[in-house]
């Protein structure tokens, strides 16, 4: 490959900012803009601590958003993550609870803590495997499959907790992971998990061949297969990763609250989907980025917390969210069409 780049300088110089970058910047500026507007109206909003809280309070949804984003870019939905959060949390409790408790809800399998964690993660990834099996092997639309497995996962959690929660007979170390402060600061381990996950995901998406494969498959699955890409294997990996992330989130949440609760993570799958769409990820696949999803989460967090700050009744929050989602997605479509006219 010997080509003089100089001779073809025009081909390089004419490169403009990619649509991807454009949309990400747009989403980021909307997030910043909304934050500034909220700061003018809401007392005590414009504070460093509040900015940090916007991120740290949403560590769970943002983490789930990473797996969901990758899948969306590949052209697939994952609505099962909320159910998996409940399942893995409940499993981690049930597996570690000592045997022979006072009643059914206080006695578990009495496994060592590390083995219980592995078991919970395995349970989570089994749901991911089920997703992959139905989507890849039986070619059932992912939205249907994952809607089903969401209920399967939550259903199992419900059976184990008998529709209630398990929070007794737990070893002392159980509550450590979810509330561990790291580096001698007030930052908790789950937030560090989210941050590392985001960085790794951005690296995979931008710099690794795995990220590129995801875009190719999402942009045109037929052309991808005819170009020698093993779509089935790749989508299987994506579902396994997404379920593993959801599994870890479930484990951390149950550790933080020292309980396994079958309704935990309720509607989180929709929040994860919403922030991904707000972040500019195309629902048809092939377009979007994890950074965009992160700023999408900020937009949602600003809207929600500003509403709380304005002492707006929580009943109105859904409507407010809905308006934000509609406006943001319309703005993106409009901006992209205009740009590419």
């Amino acid at each position: 490959m010997s080509v003089s780049i100089k001779a073809n300088k025009a081909l390089f110089d004419n490169r403009r900012m990619s649509d991807q970058m454009y949309i990400t910047l747009l989403v980021a500026s909307v997030a910043v803009g909304l934050f500034l507007i909220a700061s003018m109206w809401v007392p005590n909003f414009f504070q460093l601590q509040n900015m940090l809280n916007l991120v740290t309070n949403n560590w769970a949804v943002i983490s789930l958003g990473v797996g969901v984003s990758f899948l969306l870019v590949s052209g697939n939905f994952d609505l099962s993550v909320g159910g998996i959060v409940a399942l893995s949390g409940v499993l981690s409790v049930w597996l570690v609870q000592s045997m022979g408790g006072a009643n059914a809800l206080s006695s578990g399998l009495g496994l060592p803590y590390w083995l219980a964690l592995l078991g919970a993660l395995a349970g989570a990834m089994a749901i991911g495997g089920l997703n992959a099996l139905f989507v890849v092997k039986f070619r059932i639309p992912s939205i249907i499959v994952t809607l089903g497995t969401m209920m399967v996962a939550r259903g199992i959690a419900q059976v184990i907790t008998q529709g209630s929660q398990r929070n007794t007979n737990l070893p002392d170390e159980f509550g450590v992971l979810g509330s561990l402060k790291v580096f001698g600061t007030s930052i908790q381990l789950p937030v560090v998990f989210m941050a590392v996950l985001l960085l790794v995901a951005i690296f995979i998406e931008r710099k690794m061949i795995f990220g590129r494969l995801t875009y190719w498959i999402g942009a045109n699955p037929v052309a991808a297969r005819l170009s020698g890409i093993d779509n089935a294997r790749h989508i299987t990996y994506l579902y396994l990763f997404s379920s593993a992330i959801a599994g870890v989130v479930g484990i951390l949440l149950s550790s933080e609250f020292q309980s396994g609760y079958s309704n935990r993570g309720m509607l989180m799958e929709f929040d994860a989907l919403v922030i991904a769409l707000l972040g500019g990820i195309a629902i048809a696949g092939g377009f979007g980025s994890v950074i965009g999803m992160f700023f999408g989460a900020i937009i949602l967090a600003v809207v929600t917390s500003a509403a709380t700050g304005l002492t707006l009744s929580p009943d109105w929050q859904f409507i407010l969210k809905a308006v934000a989602v509609f406006l943001a997605i319309m703005a993106q479509t409009w901006a992209l069409t205009r740009r590419n006219q």
Partner: peptide, 27 residues
């Protein structure tokens, strides 16, 4: 069947030679 129409010329060309584009997984 052939093109990734919503991707650029640059992004279309390397797809059939993933092995050559991969440096231990790095693109």
């Amino acid at each position: 069947q052939g093109l990734f129409t919503n991707l650029t010329i640059r992004e279309n060309i390397p797809v059939m030679n993933i092995r050559r584009m991969s440096d231990n997984g790095i693109f």
